[in-house]
Design a protein around this nucleic acid. Sequence first.
DNA 1: AATAACTCGTATCCTCTTGTACGACTTACA
DNA 2: TGTAAGTCGTACAAGAGGATACGAGTTATT
Lengths: 203, 203
Amino acid sequence: MSSADTRPRRRADAERSIARIVSAARDCLSRDPDATVDDIAKAASVGRMTVYGHFRTRPELVEAALAEALRAGEQTLAGVDLGGDARQAMSRLLASSWSLVAESAALLSAAQRVLPEGRLRELHTGAADRVELLIVRGQSDGVFRTDLPVTWLVNAVQYVLHGAAEEIRLGRLDAAAASGIVTATVQSILAVPDPVGQVRSGT
Amino acid sequence: MSSADTRPRRRADAERSIARIVSAARDCLSRDPDATVDDIAKAASVGRMTVYGHFRTRPELVEAALAEALRAGEQTLAGVDLGGDARQAMSRLLASSWSLVAESAALLSAAQRVLPEGRLRELHTGAADRVELLIVRGQSDGVFRTDLPVTWLVNAVQYVLHGAAEEIRLGRLDAAAASGIVTATVQSILAVPDPVGQVRSGT
DNA sequence: AATAACTCGTATCCTCTTGTACGACTTACA
DNA sequence: TGTAAGTCGTACAAGAGGATACGAGTTATT
C-alpha cells in the first residue's frame, strides 16, 4: 500500500473512465478555470453522473486534475539533466517542459479558487521548488542575477510561461516559435544585468 | 457637448454615488474578475439597487470600470516624458504607472468575458499602443532587442506587471520594493541580449 | 453464465446571481 | 419649502450549476 491500488477492487473500464475524465479535466480547466462538471464530462465523452461516481465534488475533481498534471510535470523534470551550466540547464528544462509548466500554472489558478489554502502548497511542493533550486545554483555560480529576490525570479518566469500559453491560445503567438521565444525571454530575466547599457548611457 | 455633461440633469449626490461605485468596481474586479454586483455595491457602501439604478446590467458596470481605469491610465501616460533614451523613458513610465497598468490588465481580463469581442479593442486602443510605440522607438534606436516580436515584448511586459501585482496581493512581494524590481525585470526583457554570456561559454 | 461493478439518463433540490417591480424614505436644489 | 431625483430594502422571477436519489441497462471478471 505504497501508492498504487488505493482501493482493493476496481474494474478496468472504471480505471479507463477515470483516466479519460482527469485528462479532460486538465484540458478544460486549462482553457477555462470555470469549466463546468458537465463540460468536463462531455469532453470525456462520459455522462455527468459517471463523473460524480468517481469524484464526490467538483473540487475533488479539480484536485485530481492538478495532481496528475504536477505528477506529469515532475516526471518530465526528472528526465532533464540539470547539471552543468545553469543557463544551459534552464534552456533544456524550458525546451522540454515549458508548455506543460504553463498548463499546470493555468490549472493552478483554477485550483486556487476551489481548494483550501494549504492544500495547494502541499501539492505544489517539488515542482516549482526544483526550478528554484536551479536558479539558486545559477546564482551561486555567478551566471544568474542576484540583485532580485529568488522568489520573484521564480514567479516572474512562471508568469511569462503563463503569458506565452495565453498568447498562443489567442492566436497572437506562433506555437512553433514559442519555445525559442520563451527561452530567450527567460534567459534575459535571469541573466546578470549588463551594468553598462541598463539605464546609464544617456547621450 | 464635447465630453462633459453627457446628460443634462443629474444631482450631485448621484454623481458621487456613481463615482464611488465605479471606483469600488475597479477595486473588486481587479482582485476578483467574478466579483458580484452585490460585492461591488457593498464595497461602495451602497445598496445593490442603487447600482442598478445607474447601470442597467453588470457588463455595463464592468465596461464603465474599465473605461475609467483606461482613462486614468492614459492621463498618467500623458504626463510622462517619453522622449530621450527609450530605456530611461520606460523606467519613468513604469515608476509612475506600473501598478495602474497592472490593475488595468486585471480589469481587462475581467471585461474579456462579459464584453463583446470588438468592444475591448475599441476601448483599449491607445493605452497599450503607446507602450508599443515606445518599444518600437527603442528598437530603432538600437537600445531594445529586435530578435523577438514586438507583440510578444509588449505582452510579456504586461504579464510581468500583472504578476507583480498578484505577488503583492499574496504578500510574497514587498509593495515598496516592487517598483524597482519591476523596472529591473522589464529592462532585462527589453534589453539587447548579451551575445557572450547568453547560452555559450560552457567550460 | 452469474454477479458485482460500472454507466448514465431523468428528475429533483439547493444555492447563488442576475435583473425587475414596488414602495417608502431621504435629500438636493430651485 | 415643495418637488423631483435619488436611495435602498424587500420581494420575486428566471437561469445556471452543483449535488443527491433512483433505477434500468451494460460490461468486466470469476
